[in-house]
């Protein structure tokens, strides 16, 4: 049944279907990553985005090419949503020379100057101060771009969170702070770590607007992020969004998740899957059909497969890369400068 020009939240049918495709792509991409990890093709720490797709898709849909995204180590999805080719992300996971960071970064370290993908940080909350600085640079240069900074609920416990919100508010910086509250910082439940039960008092403490959002509802995320992005773009300063979500997998690939019950996980997966929720809504409102969802999913699966093939068939970094790029000017890469033998 093909569908009208019905809209949702001001988004066209084409846009909504694209959002559905991106959610499917992130899901399939991460499933493929997990598979390749267990095959030993991917090393180190790897943190999957499965379950949190509505957060990235709902928010980054609002951004322009010149806007910037900073993130934590759970950032494969953010990079892809900001325009990075899944192939390039997967190649980075494989540590290949065709990866976005030439295989030197890995799962936690995606970057692209052109796309405004500004990392991938392995240090919890490190991106919050840098996001303030990037937003300051835009303000200083009279540019109209917005900086969007993703972090988890664990980052809220760090001093950098508090220092950054204070500075962003004080200087009225065009930044959107997106807390993806997936309810566990590794194994630590939010209720055991926060002295408050929501981020709203914390937004208030730094004199900035805050909203709590259902992170399993991509449209709710979209609408909240839209308000925040517009505020930033209009020079009205920063916003703190607390997006309540749930990761369906462990903290990282090596986490058996003993700190929560299987029942809790099943409950979320079976009744709160953001893709399922979105599909139901699109169908109920007569905007899209199951056949279209299936088509999107097949395409997403294909793209994830292709990304893995590309990564598999890409070359390792050349040995000379080891000492390349420590400094911008490679002459001073070592601890001592020696020109003569």
């Amino acid at each position: 049944m093909a569908i009208s020009n019905a809209t949702l939240a001001g988004l066209t049918r084409t846009q909504l279907l694209e959002m559905h495709y991106m959610m499917s792509l992130l899901r399939r991409f991460e499933e493929k990553s997990a598979e390749e990890y267990t095959r030993g093709k991917i090393g180190g720490f790897m943190h999957l985005y499965i379950g949190q797709e509505a957060v990235g898709v709902g928010s980054i849909t609002n951004l322009l090419p010149e806007d910037r995204v900073l993130s934590s180590y759970r950032e494969h999805g953010h990079a892809i949503l900001k325009g990075m080719e899944p192939r390039v992300v997967m190649a980075e996971l494989f540590g290949k020379s065709t990866g976005c960071s030439k295989g030197k970064g890995g799962s936690m370290h995606m970057w692209s100057n052109e796309l405004g993908v500004y990392g991938g940080n392995g240090i919890v909350a490190a991106q919050l101060p840098m996001a303030a600085g990037l937003a300051f640079a835009a303000q200083y240069q009279g540019l109209n771009n917005v900086t969007m900074c993703f972090f988890g609920d664990g980052a809220v416990d760090e001093g950098a969170f508090h220092e950054s919100l204070n500075l962003a508010s004080l200087w009225k910086l065009p930044v959107v702070y997106m807390c993806e509250n997936n309810q566990y910082s590794m194994g630590m439940a939010v209720a055991k770590a926060w002295a408050v039960d929501s981020l709203m008092p914390r937004a208030a403490a730094y004199n900035m607007p805050g909203e709590q959002v259902d992170g399993m509802d991509v449209i709710a995320v979209y609408e909240a992020a839209l308000r925040a992005v517009e505020r930033a773009r209009n020079g009205e300063g920063p916003t703190l969004l607390e997006i309540k979500t749930y990761r369906f997998r462990g903290h990282s690939m090596t986490d058996p998740a003993y700190y929560r019950t299987r029942e809790e996980e099943h409950e979320w997966r079976n009744t709160r899957d953001p893709i399922g929720i979105f599909e139901k809504r699109l169908q109920e409102q007569g905007i899209a059909t199951q056949a279209e969802f299936d088509q999107n999913d097949a395409r997403a699966t294909q793209v994830a497969e292709d990304a893995a093939d590309f990564a598999e068939n890409s070359p390792d970094p050349a040995p000379a890369e080891l000492f390349t790029g420590v400094m911008v000017d490679n002459s001073t890469a070592l601890s001592f400068r020696r020109e003569r033998e």
């Binding site: 840098m130 303030a132 600085g133 640079a137 835009a138 200083y140 240069q141 950098a160 204070n166 500075l167």
Partner: peptide, 18 residues
Amino acid sequence: PLAEEVITGAAIGAALGG
């Protein structure tokens, strides 16, 4: 503000921003 971590991180961000 008297906050070395954020001002250093913000200076890095500003440098990244041109």
